[in-house]
Simulated scan of single mutants.
Amino acid sequence: MKRILNLREIGLLVVLLVLSSAVQAQYKGDTFKQVKASGAGTISLAYVETPGFVYKDQSGHLTGICIDIMKDFVDYVNKTKGVNLTAKYVGDGASFSGMFDKVKASSGGVFGLGNITITDARKKVLKYSPPFITNNAILITQPNVPTLTNLSNISTTFAGLTAYTAKGTLNEKRLLTIKQQYFSAMKIAYVSSSLEAEEKVLQDPKSFSYLDLAFYLDAVAHRKPLKRHPVGDKSSEQFGFIMPMNSDWQPLMEEFFSANGGYTNSVSYKKILTKHLGDTGVKLLEAVQ
């Protein structure tokens, strides 16, 4: 005969399920203190797939600006600290918010990679590396939409168009600012990622969005029918790697970025940019700095 659980037992079961879910939503990696003490260890790299920054090559292996920079970081730690540090990738890379929230809830040597803008608000819940690139956000539509000549005219030029964006991103903030200042009737539809926002614009002739530079360059390279509206370009934010608040890796990241005249001034870094953005992408990046 089956016994019926009482309310107290049901409550305890719910608590255990919630705690189990929270544990599963976290990643773990060795602290630098542990690596230094044992001479070896592993860090976990969570990521959101982003053209140019974190993507899969033809063989299905992860590559990109973020991947190559982290390889240089691991090499630097091994050479300068005399340890054997390795890295493993965690998560599926499908969602910016999923990656961001899990890194925030994690502990130890966990890093978040992708198009992650450095903001004061995020610094209250996460640690950042020094910036490794300045982003340029591109305002895009399908080609048949008239060219926007002034942001103040967007309510007429883009009348009837829906804006697509991922919640919690700087691109969402840009669109909300435009809505408040120039386009109170703007409709905003939310998607899970920048890639999905791009796909929505490709599918919907009455739509627009902001794309980070790498997404735009990828679209141009693949001859996707998208139109850039230069008057809407924004280049104010910088990207960095994120770490949980309890991480002790931040000083190592700062040391790595400042060593030997600065990592972003190095030949290795410049080769990485050219490899993943191409000459055209690097020139556009330099033009908006």
Rank of each mutant, 00 (worst) to 15 (best):
L7F: 15
M70H: 00
I133G: 04
Q24P: 03
A163I: 13
T42V: 15
A287R: 15
Q26P: 04
N144D: 03
Y164T: 11
F256Y: 11
L175P: 00
N260S: 10
A37N: 01
G52R: 03
L16V: 13
G108P: 09
G108C: 10
D75R: 14
S107P: 08
D72V: 02
G93L: 07
I69T: 08
D120P: 08
D218H: 11
D218M: 04
A214I: 01
N115H: 11
G29E: 01
S95C: 09
S59E: 05
L176P: 02
S59G: 14
V201A: 04
W249P: 06
N144Q: 09
V54Y: 00
G82C: 10
T157M: 14
A105R: 06
N136L: 02
V267D: 07
L16M: 08
A287S: 15
Y27R: 07
G240K: 04
G91E: 08
P251I: 07
W249L: 13
D57Y: 09
L277W: 05
Q24M: 14
I133P: 03
T169L: 12
N171M: 14
V220P: 07
D212A: 03
V35W: 01
P251D: 03
L277C: 02
T177R: 00
V191K: 02
H229A: 03
G64T: 13
L19I: 13
D68C: 09
V103C: 10
A214Q: 04
E286H: 14
L252E: 13
T264R: 14
F111V: 15
A221E: 10
A94S: 06
S44L: 06
A25I: 11
A159Y: 06
Y263W: 07
Y128W: 08
L126C: 04
A105P: 06
P225K: 06
I43L: 06
G160H: 00
T264H: 12
Q58C: 01
M243Y: 05
S247C: 09
N78W: 01
L226S: 07
D101Y: 11
S38P: 02
L16D: 03
P131K: 10
T63W: 03
D92F: 02
I138A: 04
V23Q: 14
V90S: 01
Q24I: 15
L85S: 00
T134R: 15
L161M: 14
